[in-house]
Design a binder for these strands. Structure first.
Length: 254
DNA sequence: ATGGCTCGTGTAACGAGA
């Protein structure tokens, strides 16, 4: 079973990329963030025609998450019941016995802003909810755009990024708290190339110069770590015309 | 050089992303 997370930065613009990528990489589950569309605009027919079932939770202009699956989707939950939030950032479902959580963690804009405070509050509530989910679902996978680079090796220029948003100590501590629930960063279960990133700024030749961050993650419970045989970032679609600024990340579960 | 590019909105700049 292959499970993928991909922030597509507008599904309206990126639907052709998603369909092309799925044709070349027929994964079982694809978690999408930043659909940026209301549910009535969601391209259900095109995705079903590609052989995928789909659950989604969107809003106008911002945020929005979706789960695409070749296998039946059950017990869909939208949002965190412990955190009253008009922003559509969480979608959970059970697929082939695995509890899949698709999350779009707030960006935070800049340290010290209201949006940064919202990010930390959101993460604290996410932690409390995931603690419940981990107890209910031993086979738990939490995929998404975390908007946090876990360590300095996940940052192209750690000195320049020190204490900035996406890298700051409180954000990293919030991610550590999630890992302390018994979750593992699947990417680091395996040997990986140096300077492996999942996001590159559109500006200043970010991708060409590999000035990136690794902020898209697949966290796995112990039962799924035991099944996990690979985790990889696919840089290919970042080279396509009009790409998302994020690359898809895929974990393989045996 | 406290930007650079890309998105949605809406049809001109501007907020937001990361």
């Amino acid at each position: 079973m292959k499970i993928t997370t991909w922030n597509v930065n507008s599904l309206n613009v990126r639907l052709p990329h998603v369909l092309k990528w799925l044709e070349e990489n027929p994964v079982d589950v694809l978690c999408i963030q930043e659909t940026k569309m209301t549910d009535d605009k969601f391209p259900v027919a095109a995705i079903e025609a590609a052989g995928y079932q789909v659950a989604f939770s969107g809003q106008k202009t911002y945020n929005g998450v979706a789960i695409l699956s070749k296998l039946p989707i059950a017990d869909v939950v939208k949002n965190n019941p412990l955190f009253d939030d008009p922003q559509q950032r969480i979608l959970a479902a059970t697929i082939a016995g695995v509890r899949i959580v698709c999350a779009y963690v707030p960006n935070g804009q800049a340290v010290g802003t209201d949006k940064y405070d919202y990010k930390l509050a959101w993460l604290a509530a996410f932690h409390d909810w995931l603690k419940e989910q981990a107890a209910l679902h031993p086979q738990l996978a939490v995929l998404g755009d975390y908007n946090i680079a876990p360590e300095d090796r996940d940052v192209h220029d750690p000195a320049a990024w020190a204490d900035q948003v996406l890298v700051s100590v409180p954000e990293r501590a919030a991610l550590t708290r999630l890992l302390e629930l018994g979750l593992s960063d699947s990417f680091r279960l395996f040997e990986q190339a140096d300077k492996s990133f999942s996001w590159w700024d559109y500006r200043a030749l970010g991708f060409r110069l590999n000035k990136g961050l690794r902020i898209d993650h697949i966290l796995l419970s112990a039962a799924l770590v035991a099944r996990c045989s690979a985790c990889a970032i696919d840089r290919a679609p970042r080279k396509w015309e009009q790409p998302s600024d994020h690359a898809p990340v895929t974990a393989t579960l045996d």
